[in-house]
Design a protein around this nucleic acid. Structure first.
Lengths: 154, 154
DNA sequence: TACGGTTTGTTCAAATTTGAACCAGCCGCT
DNA sequence: AGCGGCTGGTTCAAATTTGAACAAACCGTA
């Protein structure tokens, strides 16, 4: 399982680098940055909490916490959902957008320099295709009481 | 940056799956499992704390904490280093080894089912080679006060 | 041998993350 | 309309992680 070991080490190191750069450059956490990114590309720069949590791959409570932090510093706003009384939408503020625009270049530079640039063009498309498969294989099937090893419904 | 998004999502989901399976199957955290694994393949099933922290890619204090946990449940033991008075070696106990042997198959099954099996043979060797490159690009150079984007010393 | 600079591991406070418990609001069925 | 089950978000306690501060021990040099 050399592949797994290499992958694991690389991803840990990369995560550490990203966290470090993001913190130094903008004071944001990687989670927070991901939240802003997702919001920025959503219609109306807004999204329901649950949906956002699903996309960012974080627990509901984790998202509540981070959106709270982002709200505190004015990058995100909470508005109640018109179609669903209990629902909450996280909305990217103007300041949030500016922060993202200011931060993105440095972040992407790190991602490119340390990950993307190590792939050849063909390898990059392969990796993308495969990672999409990997993600979609897990996105749906989540067995409730799960020791299960095999995919729940493939 | 579709590649990055796919990679990021897949790796988060995979991590979640692994954590879930490991917890259900053995009560271990992924960090803890990684520690045991590294120890098991070290000469004498033992390793200096700092070296272990470097391999597992975790902070020194983080390792201290987790080794403490593992010691509490008897899977790891601390012995002072003969050659360096201040040094501490983490040693895998017999029980630790048995636990690892019991847990590994299920873990590897998850890793294979959700990640490895999505690669073709050539793609897997490519990925391994690339991830090794990625890791080694970051393994050494860690600029102290670092916004820096470029690798410090290659 | 004694000294200054490094390295080692731990302790500490603070931040983050998770799952369980919980309430409020939605939806299908009667 | 009223009931029962489900979903959406938050709150809570507990676990984990990190960086900074610290004490002990190492090393090269005088």
């Amino acid at each position: 399982m050399d592949a797994w070991l290499a992958y694991l080490t690389a991803s840990h190191l990369l995560e550490r680098r990203i966290e470090e750069q993001l913190k130094a450059d903008s004071g944001l956490t990687h989670s927070q940055y991901e939240i802003l990114t997702r919001l920025s590309s959503a219609p109306g720069q807004r999204m329901r909490m649950t949906e956002l949590a699903r996309l960012v791959v974080v627990s509901k409570s984790g998202l509540t916490y981070q959106v709270g932090q982002l709200e505190k510093i004015g990058l995100v706003e909470r508005v109640s959902c018109p179609s669903d009384e209990r629902g909450v939408m996280a909305v990217l503020t103007g300041e949030g957008l500016r922060c993202l625009e200011k931060t993105a270049p440095g972040h992407l530079a790190v991602v490119r320099a340390f990950l993307i640039d190590h792939f050849g063009p063909d390898e990059l498309t392969s990796m993308t295709r495969i990672m999409r498969k990997v993600a979609s294989a897990m996105g749906a099937a989540v067995p409730p009481s799960g020791t299960s090893v095999g995919p729940g419904e493939g």
